[in-house]
Amino acid sequence: MESTPKASTEYLEELRIQLRSQGFTVHCGESRDMDVEYGGSTLCRIDDCGNLGYFAEKIAGKEAILDRIRETVRSTRKYMTLIEQAPPLEAEGLGEGYKLLAEFNGTVLAGHMTEYGAQFITWDWTHNRKSLWQGHYYGAGGDGGGYQAAKQNFAVRSGLLPSSALFTPEQLTEVYRSIHETLDSEYPLTDERRKLLESAAGQIEDVVLDLDKRVDLSNRAELDASHSGGMELS
């Protein structure tokens, strides 16, 4: 029986950075295993091959949090594999270590490893296609939306998608809240509509990695507005 190959050091370090940026506490052992803690309880362990195992007795009521960890493991592995396998991006004035992840219609999506984690950049080629300009930077360390935000920016800048086809994280947060307000209400729903709403909520959870934090902030802002009368006088 073949053993699972060990994950790269860069991938495991990036995974630690991403988990910590979402509020998880990560304890690393000498074997490179990671214990992921949330709310004072260790929920799961990620081994040096990138496999996730969890403590069943500790996740009761925290399944959604475990799903978020799983999605972070999956998405981080995906973009780190892309960076590792992508060809170098070469342009005048550009340093070493930049990888070409995608290119379309004169726009490029690049990946670059820094001491703070993976960084993603979209650029446009100049007319002679020798140099790049108008860089938009995402990451590192979970800042600026990271890979997901960079992909969306690339799609819009290159003309693959119109900007009106994409929702901001703020918009998705409010849609998510509205979905759950409908699901949790006593309003009668058909099974088909309930499944569609639950599916939409699941998709938003996959896209907005800090969704719990955004929902909490939105709830607090609404409560503050209600306590102050909900009106502002000019």
Rank of each mutant, 00 (worst) to 15 (best):
H112D: 05
E170Y: 02
P162A: 04
G141V: 09
T168C: 10
Y137V: 12
W133C: 08
E115Y: 03
T107C: 06
E96K: 06
G95F: 04
A165V: 07
A155G: 06
S164K: 08
E115W: 03
G141P: 06
G144R: 15
G146V: 14
G106C: 04
L89C: 05
S75E: 12
R74N: 12
E170V: 09
Y137K: 05
Q148G: 14
L161T: 00
D143T: 12
Q152Y: 13
Y116E: 10
R77S: 12
L160V: 03
Q134N: 15
K78M: 14
I83N: 03
H112K: 11
N153M: 06
S158D: 08
L89V: 02
S131G: 11
G146M: 14
G144H: 12
T122F: 01
E84M: 14
G144D: 10
G144Y: 14
S75G: 06
G139L: 00
T76M: 10
G93M: 03
W133F: 12
S158C: 11
N128I: 15
E103F: 06
E170F: 09
Q171C: 13
A140F: 01
E115C: 08
P87I: 06
P87F: 06
I83T: 03
Q152I: 08
L166E: 01
K130P: 05
A91Y: 02
S163G: 12
D143N: 12
E84L: 10
G142Y: 12
A102W: 13
V73M: 04
G117R: 04
A155Q: 15
G106R: 00
A140E: 03
D143H: 13
G111V: 01
W133R: 14
R74P: 04
H127F: 09
G135Q: 13
A165Q: 09
Y147H: 13
G93Y: 04
E84N: 10
Y98T: 09
R74D: 05
G135A: 15
E103P: 09
A110E: 01
S75I: 15
V156A: 01
E92N: 09
G97D: 11
L132H: 11
S163D: 10
R77M: 14
K151E: 08
F167M: 08
E170D: 10
F154R: 07
A140W: 01
L109S: 01
M80A: 09
L94A: 02
A110D: 00
L101S: 03
P88A: 13
E90V: 12
G106Y: 00
L109E: 00
L89K: 02
Y137E: 05
G145I: 01
A110K: 02
P87N: 05
I121V: 14
K151P: 00
E90G: 11
L109I: 02
W133E: 15
W133T: 12
G139M: 01
R157A: 02
P169N: 13
L89M: 03
P87T: 07
L132A: 15
E96H: 10
T76V: 12
M80F: 07
